[in-house]
Write a protein that binds this DNA or RNA. Structure first.
Lengths: 244, 244
DNA sequence: TTAGGTCAGATTGTTGACACTTTACAATTT
DNA sequence: AAATTGTAAAGTGTCAACAATCTGACCTAA
């Protein structure tokens, strides 16, 4: 038995027996869903999960209820718990709300942003530029997430952070979320620069606009990629493979 | 299709299938919290609740986990679940996010608002005016909630609806949420008129501004009321009484 | 007096068992 | 053969009991 993520989770459960099993299990199921280990639309078999994680069904059910409120799974009475899958329309909904929250964060932060925060953002811009130039797609994607997460957290609004993070996680249920094309990195980088520039000028309105528009542009880039794939007749399986 | 006994039975079956015991209990506990029946900071005794609702602790615990994700209660391992209470800072956080979402809803709706929706909003404005003139505080408050709920739902964005409703409910945990003064109704009414006017002109930016500012003004009115009470030395008990 | 220990009651955490529902499939009928 | 009915397996819903943990009162000793 090597150190797979799965065995790591099992040992964690064994070690944290004293603590709340439910929370550990909740995170584990969440991980299985987001990693695709549990496919979209698939039913969570309580008995199988309980056996796999060496616990009874109680904690499994409690974790399921929590995940249902988070929007990761869907409960159907007497039928079971099903992994949610996001369609095109769902993804657009998430984009719109995320745009609003991202804009809000920019607007809230602009008047109170510190020099240290601006310096940190400048550093991220530099890293993103490097990733873009070396066409490091995965790196750019991670930096992009980190950049926005940083601004959201900088507002100090814990509810904004929680809701935003929930949307980011939920978006991963959109199986084609890795569709950003390589040439989009340059455009995305420019938009991030605009956001930082607006923050530096402490211009709340400009910061809102830049942030909001950045996410909306991302939505358009995604839609364009989706449409071009549909025109190509690219099957979903190819997408799934690329994501794996 | 009329209301035959047969269709009544069918709908009863549908009702039973849609409502599991856990979900019913979840709503019941939520009601008890929002109504103040369960005081802020109070621990939910699983045994007592189970006995009161004539069920076992299993469904109680499942409902508790769901309510924890919704932000109504706080889980402390091996200690229990506690009803959350919102302080001044929490209330301000909620106001800020609500302002952002309200603005977003206005911006999204402005380009696509229908005549029927505008007519409905006009009707609500008339009702609010009547409530304001007869100093019907409770009626005005309800209309205000309904007004914003209507705009949020009109966007057709289910995630926006869900998040917004969660914030509205959470805000009720702020025990002094009923602090709006009578003279504030006139100002609030004007701001609602501004929102509808911007919608009618299909001006997304103006609609965002009017909506955002309306909520932010509400925050300021609340803070002013809080401060004046603090200056008066009005005890919390008086507030609780007024809310009852 | 007070700090610390200990013990009993109360409460939460977890489990296995049982009842009910759904589902899949075989048997029967038309 | 197609449709329908019956049946058994699988899975979810709920419960009561047991284990682990916390709380608070009481007691002891410095």
């Amino acid at each position: 038995m090597t150190d797979t993520p799965e065995s790591a989770a099992l040992s964690t459960i064994a070690l944290l027996k004293a603590n709340s099993l439910t929370q550990v299990i909740q995170r584990e199921i969440e991980r299985m869903i987001l990693s695709g280990e549990l496919a979209a639309g698939e039913r969570l078999n309580e008995n199988a999960l309980a056996a796999k994680l060496s616990v009874s069904r109680g904690p499994i059910r409690e974790a399921s209820r929590a995940l249902a409120e988070l929007g990761f799974v869907h409960l159907i009475p007497n039928r079971g718990v099903f992994v949610k899958s996001l369609g095109r329309d769902d993804a657009m909904e998430v984009y719109d709300v995320r745009a609003g929250l991202t804009g809000l964060a920019g607007m809230l932060l602009a008047p109170v942003v510190t020099k240290a925060q601006l310096a940190a953002l400048d550093g991220m811009l530099a890293e993103m530029r490097a990733a873009s130039e070396s066409t490091d797609f995965a790196g750019f994607y991670a930096l992009n997430l980190h950049f926005h997460q940083f601004i959201i957290e900088a507002t100090g609004n814990s509810r904004l952070v929680r809701i935003y993070q929930g949307l980011v996680k939920e978006f991963q249920l959109f199986r084609r979320h890795g569709l950003v094309q390589q040439d989009a990195m340059a455009a995305s980088l420019d938009e991030h620069r605009d956001i930082v520039a607006a923050l530096r000028q402490r211009d709340a309105q400009a910061c809102y606009d830049a942030s909001f528009q950045h996410v909306q542009n991302g939505k358009q880039r995604m839609l364009a990629a989706l449409d071009s794939m549909a025109a190509d007749g690219t099957p979903d399986s190819a997408v799934a493979t690329r994501l794996g």
